[in-house]
């Protein structure tokens, strides 16, 4: 299918982009186009204009300042994957990004686009939740920040206003004892997962002092499994605690049925991932492996 006709605007500055967004209420921002263009071609979306922010230098770059990692919105998945800074300061993102789509798509798709798109099966929103990311947004009224846990409000829905632009993502660099784990179950490499888990935590004296389990592809948004995580806090993720956490997962997740898996299968797979991911995060297990 072919996209319906639309106008194309390419602002030269962030300020101009914001102005265009205000003057064209039915416009959509175009970043990497890897989600937006398929939607246009399927005629699922019929914006009056596309505002191409793809060349705004103000939205590019990865930096670390005062223990905070800042990833600007236009950072391509491929840049994220290749960045030594990311590998060191955000090992979870480094692990997750390999699972996002295929090289051709990773060379265009952006982190801002992925977060703004809020696909419940996407890896990066779940990572943002697990890492307690802060999402920096610019709008007509200036800048504001939104915590990841408040950002993803529903299926493909976010707290972002229609006149706002996602400018950057900020996360803390890893503290002492920080541990991460990431696994997903996808039928083919590069596919959206049937179930995935991005986890971040802190180990102190051999026990989990902090743990956030962010599941994706299990509901309308990525979901923090707080009940399951609570069962593991203060433990060394021993088999009994893991079993309790697996049982508690039923209070956190109520996954949908779809072509790939029934709700019950998804919950089962989420439990398998729980055990595998959390075990991989424990220092003694990693040594054994």
């Amino acid at each position: 299918m072919k996209a319906p006709a639309f106008g194309y605007l390419r602002p030269a500055s962030l300020a101009e982009a914001l102005a265009l967004l205000q003057s064209h209420p039915d416009a959509k921002l175009l970043a990497g186009g890897q989600s937006l263009l398929p939607a246009l071609n399927l005629r699922l979306s019929q914006p009056s204009h596309l505002i191409d922010i793809g060349r705004l230098a103000e939205l590019c770059g990865i930096s670390v300042q005062q223990g905070r990692l800042r990833i600007a919105a236009l950072t391509r998945h491929a840049e994220l994957q290749a960045s030594p800074l990311i590998a060191q300061a955000a090992p979870l993102l480094h692990a997750a990004i390999q699972h996002v789509a295929h090289p051709a798509i990773r060379s265009r798709g952006t982190i801002g686009g992925s977060l703004a798109n809020a696909d419940p099966a996407a890896e990066l929103p779940a990572c943002a939740l697990a890492l307690q990311a802060r999402i920096d947004v610019l709008g007509p009224g200036g800048a504001r920040s939104i915590q990841a846990c408040d950002f993803f409000t529903g299926l493909f829905e976010t707290a972002l206003g229609s006149d706002e632009i996602l400018a950057a993502v900020e996360i803390d660099t890893p503290c002492e004892g920080a541990v991460f784990g990431f696994q997903e179950l996808a039928r083919r490499s590069g596919d959206y997962a049937i179930v995935g888990l991005a986890a971040a935590g802190r180990v102190e004296g051999g026990a989990l002092a902090e743990l956030r389990l962010a599941y994706f592809s299990v509901g309308a948004t990525a979901i923090l499994a707080t009940n399951a995580a609570a069962c593991l806090l203060g433990t060394a993720a021993d088999p009994a605690s893991l079993s309790r956490a697996e049982a508690a997962l039923a209070q956190d997740l109520d996954p949908p049925d779809d072509l790939q898996a029934s709700s019950a299968t998804r919950l089962h797979l989420a439990r398998v991932l729980l055990r595998r991911v959390v075990s991989s995060m424990m220092p003694q297990q990693r040594l054994a492996a």
């Binding site: 039928r187 898996a261 299968t265 797979l269």
Partner: peptide, 10 residues
């Protein structure tokens, strides 16, 4: 599919 295999197993 994983669903078919799991159904057979469990």
């Amino acid at each position: 599919s994983p669903e078919v295999v799991l159904r057979a197993l469990h």
